[in-house]
Write a protein that binds this DNA or RNA. Structure first.
Lengths: 199, 199
DNA sequence: GTCTATAGGATGATAGAC
DNA sequence: GTCTATCATCCTATAGAC
């Protein structure tokens, strides 16, 4: 993952955030690790904010791609949705720092640019599309395609990941006290929206 | 809520965190608002960390007391659990800054002391006790008293609150896009653990 | 308990030579 | 693209007078 100096800087930034918290990104420390002087960083990024933004953009895009790839190998509907969510959990635990940057907003000054945020918007649209597909396949009740259901699914996924990242950020996906419950979490959702059911 | 200087300082600290993020607590700014010089703060708190710790302790204790009070007015079992969780949501939105301090860990250096963290431990024990009571009352299946169910409930509550606080921190509880789904969230859990059900 | 003064650092960012 | 030098702040914390 090295190669270009730009990439070295991003890698070092992730390492620094892993040690000092996502908000603790420190350009002097980044420069030290890359082996250059701190002012030289400004030939690669115009500001500290720009480093955050690029990390956010890359993380959101990688998350989106990984989830889409996993879903595309599955049958449309519930199976694809399940694969999509599970891939999200796996990549979050593989890159806990980036997942925290994406998920919460621990950096007071930083707001991602529109461009950087776009993959996250597409992510939510994907979830909605998977829910619609499951409804059309008769796997879920009509209500599962509505806004409340999308919000509910988002509560489930972010809740699981934020609990896992806050309590056992270095656990493996299948052993994490929370991520290992993902199948049950999804099962809970599916049963709630089972066709012919109450909601 | 004013009164003592110590309390004035804590109130000002909350206000500063509301504006600059939980991690952005700034003693000079706190002093300015209280109307004293920054070094004078050290007559009331030995360090910045101590301010965080006291805020954490107070927030955890108030959350615990509010939830317990709400639950005590309800019938033991599911009703009490529901009241307990709803009260948690309401107090979190009433004090979003403190809820963020309790929930995530957005301050890199700060780790709450044992003493400050104790109410949070009791909170989890309470949830477990309510689940046990609901099982004994025949309202939930046996499995609802086990560790996974406690983790699941914790995913649901923290997921709802973190999504609400991240996206609409200033919404009213009943209008929040996420907190307003609390009844459905609990319903989903209850149905998943309905007596005679599969888990 | 409040003040002034200041130590002692850290940090993001810019200017200009090479 | 990298360097040195430096600016301009900003912050927590301490010392000591009142």
């Amino acid at each position: 993952m090295g190669g270009t100096r730009r990439q070295e800087i991003l890698d070092a930034a992730i390492a620094v955030m892993a040690e000092r918290g996502v908000a603790g990104l420190n350009l002097s420390e980044v420069a030290r690790r890359v082996g250059i002087r701190q002012p030289s960083l400004y030939k690669h990024f115009p500001s500290r904010h720009a480093v955050y933004d690029e990390l956010f953009r890359l993380a959101a895009q990688q998350q989106l791609e990984a989830a889409r790839k996993a879903a595309s190998a599955a049958r449309p509907g519930l199976e694809a949705l399940t694969a999509y969510v599970e891939a999200t959990g796996r990549i979050a635990l593989a890159q806990p720092v980036l997942a925290q940057l994406l998920g919460s907003r621990p950096v007071p000054d930083f707001e991602p640019s529109r461009e950087a945020f776009r993959p996250s918007v597409e992510y939510v649209e994907d979830v909605r599309a998977h829910l619609r597909a499951a409804v059309e396949a008769g796997e879920l009740a009509e209500a599962a395609a509505e806004d409340d259901a999308v919000a509910l699914m988002s509560i489930l996924v972010t809740g699981t990941l934020s609990q896992q990242l806050a309590n056992e950020p270095n656990a493996a996906y299948d052993e994490g006290r929370f991520t290992r419950l993902i199948p049950q979490v999804l099962d809970m959702f599916v049963r709630f929206y089972s066709p012919g059911g109450p909601p």
